[in-house]
C-alpha cells in the first residue's frame, strides 16, 4: 500500500470574484521510505501539495490518502492527532520556539497532545532524554543543547528543526524549501543530513523545492507546473515513469 496517495486532486482558491485553480487533477503516490521531491516554479502548486500532505489544507475535489486514511473524513481534532503522530515538519524559516533551548525545542513535540491522545505520554523521562540526546548527537548539536535559537547559526537552527521533526518518530517528514535561507554549502550539509536520517530511520521525506542539490539526492521526483504534474519519475535503480497530465 502506498504511504501517500493523491487521487485526482483539485484545489481552487477564491480570489475576490475569481476562482484560482491551484491544482488541476494531480495524481501520484509515494512509497514508504522515499526521499520524495516536488519541484516546480513559483506558483506551480508545490506548497499546496505539501499542505495537503501535511493535512493543513483539504482538496476541493479528489482524495488525499495517508497510510490508507482519507484525510477529508477526519475532523480537526483527528487531523491534529494525525499530524502529531505521523508527520514531522521542517520549515523554510526554521520556526524554532525562541524561548526554549535546543534540547527543549527537540523535546517539545513529545509533550504535545492531551494524555489520552499523546502516545509519548507513557515514555519515561529517561526514555525521552535518551531519544532527544540521540537525535541531537545525530544532527551534530549534542554540545549545543542548552543554547537558545538566537545563539545559533542558520544551519544549526535547521539541524535543530530536523531533530525536532524526527522526535516523534514520524512516518513522514515534510520539508518546505528547507535550504532556501541557507548558503549552498550549509544547504548541502542539511540535505545530506536528511538523506542520512531517511536511510537510517526509514522515515519518508517529502520536499518542496527548486534546489537542484535536493533533486540530485532524491529517489522520487514529481515535477509540477501550473497545477499539473509534468513529470513523475524515480531515479537510479528504480523504474521511472513519465506522467503527462495531458496525455
Amino acid at each position: 500500500m502506498p504511504l501517500i496517495e493523491f487521487q485526482q486532486v483539485h484545489k481552487n482558491y477564491p480570489l475576490g470574484s475569481t476562482i484560482v485553480p491551484a491544482l488541476q487533477g494531480v495524481s501520484f503516490t509515494v512509497q514508504k521510505g522515499d526521499f520524495f521531491t516536488i519541484c516546480g516554479p513559483s506558483g506551480s502548486g508545490k506548497s499546496t501539495i505539501l499542505n495537503m500532505i501535511g493535512c493543513i489544507d483539504t482538496p476541493s475535489q479528489g482524495e488525499v490518502v495517508i497510510e490508507g486514511v482519507q484525510t477529508s473524513s477526519l475532523n480537526d481534532r483527528q487531523i491534529t492527532q494525525l499530524r502529531h503522530e505521523k508527520l514531522g515538519f521542517i520549515f523554510q524559516s526554521f520556526n524554532l520556539i525562541p524561548v526554549l533551548n535546543v534540547y527543549e525545542n527537540v523535546e517539545f513535540p513529545l509533550l504535545l497532545g492531551s494524555g489520552k491522545d499523546n502516545p509519548y505520554a507513557s515514555w519515561s523521562a529517561s526514555d525521552k532524554q535518551e531519544w532527544v540526546s540521540y537525535l541531537l548527537d545525530k544532527v551534530g548539536l549534542k554540545d549545543y543543547a542548552q543554547r537558545r535559537p538566537a545563539e545559533l547559526s542558520g544551519g544549526q537552527r535547521q539541524r535543530v528543526a530536523i531533530a525536532r521533526a524526527l522526535s516523534t518518530k514520524p512516518t513522514i517528514v515534510l520539508a518546505d524549501e528547507p535550504t532556501a535561507n541557507l548558503d549552498s554549502k550549509t544547504g548541502d550539509q542539511i540535505i545530506h543530513l536528511m538523506r542520512e536520517m531517511n536511510q537510517q530511520l526509514g522515515t519518508t521525506f517529502v520536499f518542496s523545492t527548486h534546489d537542484p542539490q535536493v533533486l540530485e539526492v532524491a529517489d522520487h521526483v514529481v515535477k509540477i507546473r501550473d497545477g499539473l504534474v509534468e513529470e513523475d519519475y524515480r531515479t537510479a535503480g528504480i523504474d521511472s515513469s513519465v506522467t503527462d497530465a495531458g496525455a
Partner: peptide
Amino acid sequence: EIGTMRAMGAQKSL
C-alpha cells in the same frame, strides 16, 4: 509560533 505548534500537533486546547 502558534501556527508551528499547531502544525506539530498541538490541539486548540493546548
